[in-house]
């Protein structure tokens, strides 16, 4: 992987920026916000990750707390957005997991609001996108996986294993199905987290690649049009991925609450 980018870097060496320079992955570099570039990154160092996570928190605070401060019966535009996002996730949790899943609504709302805000903030030019990092989405994905698995065993005991024993299938098929179900169950957190990180990373990298082509005058109009088009697509993807992550979380939660098929 290193060789591809190094080829490009040699062209940009000594500040002589001629020709095409591709650094599509540089936007994902973690660096300290204080101090110099190349300073070591410890686990507590405030980095650009910290900055953009903090901005997500501020965005969520502005969207859900500041807009609702008037508690108006007839809502303002901002309050409508807050109520819509509340109703959107509340209904999703209620529809998928049922009434008894509603006590987990704050956790799912936290996940959704974090992912959607981080995704959208990451679309700002020069922004850093925390959700494009597998470290971040893996924490979310495995967090959901462990929470749901533990919850399943706590609520149902060993009946939770009934999730893997498809009682509606013929008896001979059940052991095979159990193995398939078991594998698919353990693949869930991987696909859950890589789906989000992969989508975010791919879109941002593609935009960067097109942006590099804009340096060549002949293809610049095409390149800029492509950036605009992909940006539009990314806006859609940002929301859809947050939605998909949340709805899958609800589906997994439903398995924990009602393990029988």
């Amino acid at each position: 992987m290193a060789s591809e980018t190094e080829v490009a870097v040699t062209a940009g060496a000594d500040g002589a920026q001629s020709g095409l320079v591709f650094h599509p992955m540089d936007q994902f570099i973690v660096k300290p916000i204080f101090g110099q570039a190349g300073d070591p990154v410890f686990w507590y160092t405030p980095t650009n990750v910290t900055l953009w996570l903090g901005l997500s928190v501020l965005a969520i605070f502005a969207l859900l707390v500041m807009t609702t401060s008037r508690r108006a019966v007839i809502p303002s535009r901002g309050q409508s957005v807050a109520e819509l996002s509340y109703g959107f996730i509340y209904k999703m949790v209620e529809d998928i997991t049922g009434k008894d899943g509603l006590k987990y609504f704050p956790y799912i709302m936290t996940l959704f609001m974090f992912i959607v805000c981080a995704n959208f903030l990451g679309l700002l030019p020069t922004a850093f996108t925390p959700t494009s990092h597998i470290a971040v989405t893996a924490v979310l994905g495995f967090g959901v996986f462990f929470a749901v698995t533990i919850l399943g065993f706590v609520l149902n005991g060993f009946k939770f294993l009934g999730l893997f024993w498809v009682s509606s299938a013929p008896l001979a098929l059940r052991p095979i199905l159990a193995i398939i179900e078991l594998i698919s169950y353990f693949v869930r957190p991987v696909s859950h987290s890589i789906r989000l990180a992969g989508n975010m990373m791919a879109g941002h990298a593609v935009i960067k690649v097109f942006a590099a082509f804009a340096a060549v005058a002949a293809v610049a109009p095409v390149s800029i049009a492509a950036i605009a088009a992909i940006y539009g697509l990314e806006v859609l993807v940002s929301f859809i991925q947050a939605y998909v992550f949340t709805i899958l979380t609800c589906v997994y939660l439903k398995d924990a609450l009602h393990p029988s098929h």
Partner: peptide, 16 residues
């Protein structure tokens, strides 16, 4: 500049 995918740089995992 990034070497490979910054997403796979384990030195940055803890911080994130």
């Amino acid at each position: 500049s990034a070497i490979g995918m910054p997403q796979l740089c384990d030195a940055w995992f803890g911080n994130q």
